[in-house]
Nucleic acid binder design. Sequence first.
DNA 1: ATCCCGAGGG
DNA 2: CCCTCTGGAT
Length: 214
Amino acid sequence: MQPTLQQRCTKIYQRLHARYRLPASMLEWHNPWELLVATVLAAQCTDARVNMVTPVFFRRWPGPAELSTAPVAEVEQMVRSTGFFRQKAKNLVATARIIVHEYDGRVPETMAELLTLPGVARKTANIVLSNAFHKHEGIAVDTHVRRLSFRLGLTISTNPTIIERDMMQLFPREQWGEINHLLVLYGREICRARKPLCSECVLEDLCPRNGVVG
DNA sequence: ATCCCGAGGG
DNA sequence: CCCTCTGGAT
């Protein structure tokens, strides 16, 4: 008797939760603004690299007020090593200006408002909402969540919006924030993009690769 | 679909 | 060389 999709998700959560207990992002931050900046910089970049940049960044520009008047060229050099540096610098300065002028200098706390910021889509907004404000409006779908949800047969889509909708159906809301961290950690350690360590996998009996009906 | 973009691993 | 890293806008 094959387990249902829901039953598999329950087991996936239980096993990864047991493995990682209270998982957190490796990004280093001290307030919502720092988490927002770090998450924008994390696009197509490792957390370790972001963490090399952000301490210097926040010493130079501690908050949105300081960044809003910074020369974009100087910001570009600061974030250069994270890749996509022209886009990220331009978006971060523009975001700082919007937060200063439209939100009284504070990072907005709703999905709709966060999505108005340049360079911020649902993935970044979900990370900020769940981690900085403890609001779980959705599930952050990044490269790891996309790869693992597909491999585990939790979605047949490669579209992040559809993947998020599928995942929201499969996991209870109180797990939405944590499931992102669990899948990211497991994706980095075991279910890696390049050479997944299937022989060490604790989800082996739940994976379509081993005959479980997707 | 394509572009943005540097750094590290293999 | 190629692939990947907690994406987003056009």
